[in-house]
Design a protein around this nucleic acid. Structure first.
Lengths: 258, 258
DNA sequence: GCGGCGCATTGTGCGACGTCAATGCGCGGC
DNA sequence: GCCGCGCATTGACGTCGCACAATGCGCCGC
């Protein structure tokens, strides 16, 4: 059983709401009946800020970014959505941020009204959605910790740790060589700077500072090999690694305890 | 109809889960049957980090702080809980932070298992809980925006704006005089510094810088009058004020459209 | 192959925050 | 009323990140 197979299994289980094993056959059928797949190119907007959107959905492939538009026109990224993540408003009004494709992306969309209706009468779906939102909340709080530091190197290190732990289930963690795991950063320096609340120049400097210290190696601007995970975590402020008690497993790319 | 009466009405509607008008009589009765009120003194721990807690609840009075303990012993506050806020894990495992009383506080606690059971068969409660979590998520994202700036004055300004908008429903917004609203900061400089990811000295400096510019007035360390809301919002980075489209109403302490 | 555009990187000066240390202030105990 | 502790505040100094620019690099269209 290779790493690739595990990853694939993982993806099958989580990526598509309609195929999740923890939903009943009835619920899956009802979801399938109302689902439709949409494709977006990098840069396209999926949902508009303030939009009283009639759409909920989950990401099938690619990366979406959630961003707030400030009054002065600047935009701040408040989170990334990767394969399997849900987005859109359930139950209450307008979005407080817009959702755009950070890469070419595929989503599975559900019209809101029937989705809510199904949600109300399907405890299994309710549970899945609630867990998804709670997970999202945990991720947001992890970001809070990362952003609470104002040393950029710390933020970058925290970002990389989160990429390793949270996104390991999809293929942003490309492969595990003898030198250490290789992380794929799915967004450019500019977006990353927005995400971390800084400037592209500082992001670049922080990456190269970590590289000089032998903590990481920059294979390409968007491909980073982690050489010294321990040092990276220390640089990230010795976080308790929040929602990932099984980080060590993840980093070794062991299959999660099933 | 005075401001105080509106506020009181508001509090009756939201503070206690058992009394919420958007729950059915049956659900309220079931909640009451399993509820028990607990009191905590400032500094006491309500829930421990990593605790596989069997408790969910909501705050009746006072302020709780959610904080992560880092590996090196430092603690970082990831959010505050005020009257009406819910806390605790629904459906899945351990907490990723501890919950402590920031002031003397009263909570209404429910044992987790029966609460979840009730949740599964009560769409009205499900909706209330889900909205609560979504609200929490929005608040976390507002914090993300605030923390994404590393200018401390901006963070402080953002904090004050959030205090005005999000906590206006409880009495942290003390009163509205001719000179402007007065905000009660329910935590000390040290905690505030933890919350904003900085040091008490910098918090102090930022407050006094805003005071020098005539934006706020420091009545007491924990009592702040907003003299120039427009300047404060501008200083906060011209945020779109996230989840508070009715901020202007709130700041004028008008009753919300019912 | 060539040119152009966008993105990443590198260099420099200035301003802001952290650190360390000292002082002021308020409140509760005695 | 007095004392002492904890918290808030203020000051001096070093470091780090931002602003502003310039340069290098890769990719795409022509």
């Amino acid at each position: 059983m290779t790493v690739e197979n595990d990853t694939a299994t993982c993806r099958n289980r989580f990526v598509d709401l309609r195929q999740r094993a923890d939903l009943t056959e009835d619920t899956r059928r009802a979801l399938s009946a109302m689902a439709h797949v949409r494709r977006y190119h990098s840069g396209q907007t999926v949902l508009f800020d303030g939009d009283d959107s009639d759409l909920v959905g989950n990401v099938i492939s690619g990366v979406l970014r959630m961003q707030k538009t400030l009054a002065d026109g600047r935009q701040h990224i408040v989170g990334l959505l990767v394969e399997g993540d849900m987005f859109g408003r359930v139950f209450n009004g307008a979005l407080h941020f817009s959702v755009e494709a950070a890469t070419d992306a595929e989503i599975c969309a559900y019209p809101r009204a029937p989705f809510e209706k199904l949600l109300t009468r399907s405890p299994d779906l309710e549970r899945v959605v609630m867990l998804n939102i709670l997970n999202e909340l945990d991720r947001a709080r992890d970001w809070l910790i990362i952003l609470s530091s104002q040393k950029i190197t710390t933020r970058i290190a925290g970002f990389l740790v989160v990429m390793c732990s949270q996104f390991a289930r999809v293929d942003h963690l490309v492969r595990n060589s003898e030198s250490g795991p290789v992380v794929h950063v799915p967004i450019g320096r500019g977006d990353l700077a927005h995400l971390l609340g800084t400037r592209p120049e500082s992001v670049s400097r922080a990456f190269h500072a970590l590289a000089r210290d032998g903590v990481i190696a920059l294979l390409k601007p968007d491909l980073i090999r982690i050489l010294d995970m321990e040092a990276l975590v220390a640089e990230a402020g010795d976080e308790d690694l929040g929602g990932t008690p099984n980080l060590k497993e993840t980093l070794q790319l062991r299959p999660p305890r099933s």
